[in-house]
């Protein structure tokens, strides 16, 4: 904060409002808790004691209204795809999507003969981070969340949206 730096007592910090908001946003990635297939087991493991996602402030929410991030963990069947889309639409802005695992990225093992599987969740919702793996280890999910934190920190929230 250039000119204002070191002008006040030591216990006063100066920052921009955007930075403050982004710091708090990226430190509280509340994710929407729903698993579609085996990848969800790794997501649960990431949230549980050993990997402890909550040290990043990431905590599972059961309602789309309270969630900032949707982790699409698993196989998106065509039947579920319409529901995934609806749930995404119910989330409040700003909202993010993490596509976890080969299935959500591209159909994974169901690429061939998967008559019932959507070949990539990015066909129906915009994806911010893709995590490869079948399933990705919890460490990979944590790295994905950290990439998302980076993205959040770089995004101005107060500036007008151009659309």
């Amino acid at each position: 904060m250039g000119a204002l730096n070191h002008k006040f007592n030591e216990n006063i910090l100066i920052t921009s409002l955007d930075k403050l908001l982004n710091w708090s946003r990226s430190g509280s990635e509340w994710y929407f808790q729903f698993g579609l297939a085996c990848c969800a087991i790794e997501m649960m493991s990431a949230a549980a004691a050993r990997h402890d996602l909550e040290r990043f402030g990431a905590m599972p929410r059961s309602s789309p209204r309270q969630a900032d991030v949707m982790i699409v963990a698993g196989t998106v069947t065509l039947k579920m795809a319409t529901r995934v889309k609806r749930l995404y639409e119910q989330m409040a802005e700003p909202k993010y999507v993490i596509s976890m695992g080969s299935c959500a990225n591209s159909g994974g093992p169901y690429w061939q003969h998967g008559y019932h599987v959507l070949k990539g969740v990015d066909q129906i919702v915009p994806v911010d981070v893709y995590i490869p793996g079948c399933p990705p280890r919890p460490e990979a999910l944590i790295e994905g969340l950290m990439h998302l934190q980076k993205k959040m920190r770089e995004q101005p929230v107060l500036a007008k949206k151009e659309d």
Binding site: L78, A81, T82, G107, W111, Q112, H113, Y115, H116, L118, K119, Q123, I124
Partner: peptide, 20 residues
Amino acid sequence: PLRKDYVPAEFYRGMRIEKV
């Protein structure tokens, strides 16, 4: 779908089912 002569459709409700 599990009939041996089943041919997957190209689209379902506007979502693409990739052709094998």
